[in-house]
Design a protein around this nucleic acid. Sequence first.
RNA 1: GCGCCGGUGCCCGAGCGGACCAAGGGAACGGCCUGCAAAGCCGUAAAGCCGCGGGUUCAAAUCCCGCCCGGCGCUCCA
Length: 534
Amino acid sequence: MISLYDTLAGEVRPLATREPGKVALYACGPTVYDHPHLGHARSALTYDVLRRYLEWRGLDVRHVANITDIDDNIINRARDEGRTEGEVAVEWEAVYVDAMAKLGVLDPHERPRATEWVREMVDFVGRIMDVGAAYSTPTGVYLRVRDVAGYGDLVHRDLDDLRASAGARVEVDEAKEDPLDFALWKAAKPDEPSWPSPWGPGRPGWHIECVAMSLGILGDDFDIHGGGNDLVFPHHTNERAEALAVGRTFARHWVHNAMLNIEGTKMSKSLGNYRTVVEMLDEHPLNGRAFRLLVLQTHYRKTMEVNPELMASARSAVQRLDALSRRAAAAGIDIISRSGGTSGASRAVGAWTDDEWTVLPTSSHGPSLDHAAVEAFREAMDDDLGTPQAVAAIFDTLRRANAALDAGSEDAATLVATVRDLSERGLGIPNAGPPHLAGRLGAGGSTCAPGVTVLPDGGDDGGDDDGGLTASGEGGMAEDTPGPSDAEIEELVTRRQATREAKDWAAADALRDELSAMGVVVEDTPAGPVWHRQ
RNA sequence: GCGCCGGUGCCCGAGCGGACCAAGGGAACGGCCUGCAAAGCCGUAAAGCCGCGGGUUCAAAUCCCGCCCGGCGCUCCA
């Protein structure tokens, strides 16, 4: 049974979906007017992992993540740059989508844009007017908050409490009946983009966007509504109020991820600790996977810390995953297959530079998995997405796999396959770089046999109930590999191997230094040297 | 001010009443392996320990009360 913390209930509850076997998930996306930052990435990663896990469990997930492409920030930027709002939004949406792809975030099934749903938003506002829960003023249409019973339930605060804060902070709009009332529709100001409406030209308020799109696409009573915990109030509170005002049932579960701090404080431009996803990714080819691992090592409801040291330690951990793949390959256990260039259409994410690889499906003909490890993983994930413990289970299995490899045990194949399945398909962390990173020379001269899985005894995974090991392949993340070509490297590795066989250690070491200077690491295994780029 | 969430080993971070498990990751040190490395495995005593002070309990890092410190929200925000 899968449980999740529900913000509205204030406790961990079993995930009770509207339809058995299906999950309708709506996660609030970004407003596109600037570079996505690490916080956007943490949020996107949270729902990506939630989705992957639900799918790993065999559930049919419909994931919707919106793009807010019209708002004050976009308008301001467009004005500053002398462009249209549309141009600004299109540009930054592309940057966002590309950055998420590089983080291995699967494309949501639908990515609605606010501007494409204005008609539905106008209709929605109209219905709220019809039931008398809203009123129109010269500046726009406002929801009368006191008409909505349980308005503050999501934030667990009552009206007076909220009002005390609001009055003190925000300049009170004279036209509003209550400082808490918020705009459903904003009357157009000169030079601003606008759409026609029964209340005059204007544009939708922020909250109405998500209500119209989530209910419009997923329908009433959809399963999970997620977003950053900074959206609990006012955004989600107001979305909910709009839906309740017209008597519609909204999200069954509210999931909110915590914020991300850099050097102890929330990042912000003014503090100079604002970090974009692109910068982070550019700093090191392993950072995409490292950041995902770092995010997963902290529970999603707890503020997490990011700094260069932590990124470095996460990179080291990622390298252990890769090392296992190399060791397994050297031992003849190879569950990586090269897909001959076909870039799986359903694949959401960018391929590994020029090569693309995938993991063989483990459904019916796949290798058997280690039952205890799978159970530990599932137990951790079922309990409110316990990714830190899930990661622990994976690394524990990784250690066992290495030990089995050392011992030449038959269990090795199963354990290696388990590590791969859980980390890649369950959490979205690919285990090895492009196949050529595992390029292998030596006595046998064999390279990874395409599509071949050499594993003993491919029985199913212990016949346990709903392991749901049925989803398909894995998305990759871009990790550029500039520098010397494979041929150049293999040339040096081959020469070094010759000197080693001649026991000319000095020459061998010199060649290794040379390779090392090129960023290439050579490991001598019983089956011959194996190399990979740093 | 109001609300919420945290303070666990050198660092990050699980655990949230009882298992000689304070998980897992990183760093460090020792051993094995190796031509040397890398990768990998094994190990890292005793004492003490889970912000501080009380309390509840046969039993608390885990529950209650108080205090100190930190973060976030209440305003566009993932």
